[in-house]
Design a protein around this nucleic acid. Sequence first.
DNA 1: TTGCGTGCAAAGGTTTTGCATGGCA
DNA 2: TGCCATGCAAAACCTTTGCACGCAA
Lengths: 151, 151
Amino acid sequence: MADKKYKTKQREELENYLRTIPEKHFTVQDICAHFREEGKNIGTTTVYRQLERLMEEGRVNKYILDESSSACFEYIESDGKCHHPSCYHMKCEKCGKLYHLDCHEIEDLTRHLEEHHGFKVDPFRTVFYGVCAECSGEADHCGDDCECHHH
Amino acid sequence: MADKKYKTKQREELENYLRTIPEKHFTVQDICAHFREEGKNIGTTTVYRQLERLMEEGRVNKYILDESSSACFEYIESDGKCHHPSCYHMKCEKCGKLYHLDCHEIEDLTRHLEEHHGFKVDPFRTVFYGVCAECSGEADHCGDDCECHHH
DNA sequence: TTGCGTGCAAAGGTTTTGCATGGCA
DNA sequence: TGCCATGCAAAACCTTTGCACGCAA
């Protein structure tokens, strides 16, 4: 099962870049745009394939927040442990921002759901939708007509 | 703000059909196929637009289970109140079943998220993804190669 | 030299948009 | 008669696949 893996220039540059943005969210397009700005060019296909491999290695997470928009990826520091108490996210329906849910209560709930409901939650896939503090504070300035979440 | 809404044949037929499958999952294609079988024809575009409207009215939920496959919708009984202690759902990624999360712990968490994180969760939109009791019990029969969740 | 990796182009899917036509009020 | 709704076709997107060429080992 020892996969033969070549260490290519693209793979190395991609990983180097990812290391500079740990735990930030990005799309395939973001990556391509970044390298284009630096004069370097990495094909879209390659980025998809490298990210897929990194996912299999558990070094990248993939989130699907909205169809009809690109999937969101996140690089995980490769020291083998998650820096967050939990891997859940909260997504604001007003401004579109995505927050890590750093909270121990959710751990308790996760355990509760498994022990009492027999349901083993996948924190990577699970997103809490709602309204964030920022947006509920300035509700008047950011109503339904606000387009800020279309960035 | 009183939207002018015509009551069209298509809208009525769609709602009539949805009422027969409350809390079941369907895609836009499913709907179109159903009406095609009955000889009636409703355009894909129309279904998308009607479902969008129903979503805004809070009578339909939309789930994104996998990119590169269609979005999933669910009709909610429209009597205006939820029959469950909480309105969260758990969705099994193996068998595709959707469970209501009848649980008081989740109420506590909701309160906690609002009070300590300033995040007001929308329980109707939020779905816990994971593996249900049934499926984790028969893990051997329903492994990664199992296609049952592709219905 | 071997065979994996790359990247262009094209395909495959879902969802959205434009626009002429149809139907509700 | 207004004007919203419909539905076809086309566009817009994201993602995947095919294939020839390049490059690491």
